[in-house]
Amino acid sequence: MGFCKVIKPGLFTTIQDRGRFGYQQSGMPVAGAMDEYALRVGNILVGNPEGESCLEITLLGPTLEFLSQGLIALTGGDLGGQLNGKELPLWEACEVKAGDILKFTGVKKGCRAYLAVAGGFNVPVVMGSKATYVRGAIGGLEGRTLREGDILEKGPSNSAGLAGRKVPQDDIYTLSNHITLRVVLGPQSDAFTAEGINTFLTSSYTVTNEADRMGYRLEGEKIQHQKGADIISDGIVMGSVQVPGHGMPIVMMADRQTTGGYTKIATVITPDLPLLAQAKPGDKVSFRSVSIDEAHSIYRIYEEKIAALKRTLRSSVPQDKSSVPKGPKRTLKLLVNGKEYLVDVEEVQ
């Protein structure tokens, strides 16, 4: 039996996991969630492995009717999700039953929401992943976006007692209409003039209407090359900032082609990519350069934070009200002599 029925598909709703890795050497794009943080945290909330499939919902959300009982969590941008006409809190595990209706009233903040369901979505694994790659027509639900009338099934799960778990406020990113993304310069930063690099790092760019799962085209002050913008094609990672001859940056995202022939001035660091995935046309983007070692220590903190969140949420189960009341376990980020430390705090009341 199905888990939910698509009443309205929304603008661009797809099944995504963490991506199809291992085939880039064969020209197969990775795809996967644009905002991997929201995907991973949503899965943690409902007791799934972090990389399980979720629905990625873009700007205008779908209307779904649940056909059976299950545990869901909505994470990421606030697209006005409502369950049976009442606001559905983000970053929280919530029980649904047959007949419940989930709909979205419109964007309040961000660009993409993720609907995680205990057990994940039951679609075939194609080349190691459930991620939908729409241009290649593979993965997810027949390689396409959701359509009216689709029935989605969920996999088996044991989610008893997980309802009501919440992500602590400290672990939820703040979305804004002007974001700063940290970048590591390279691999082709030497193809730009010093002035060009300065322009890139000091001016602010606007997200254009051409911003999708493949890449975000930005508009702003022209970035100057040394000689030309063309190179012999090489590999592209998620977050690569390509600058073609017109001098405007394009940040390559989940559905990017595996190789490309334009100079890449810098690469956005992994922990900041969710912020860009939540940016929408008209939003402003600035770039700040960090060294590779700084990038790695930021990355370690990011991963430690997710691991700590997983521990926190695990220990907040079961919610037996007769036991000694404990405050939620929180992770504090402390700055000592310029170094960040993560401290787990569990207050007994």
């Binding site: 012999i232 094609s233 090489d234 790695h296 990355y299």
Partner: peptide, 20 residues
């Protein structure tokens, strides 16, 4: 993951296991 191209090789690594 290793991605060979015309004149280079892109190596994907886990920064929790390798410093640059």
């Amino acid at each position: 993951e290793l991605v060979p191209t015309y004149r280079s090789l892109l190596v994907y690594y886990d920064p929790l296991q390798w410093s640059y």
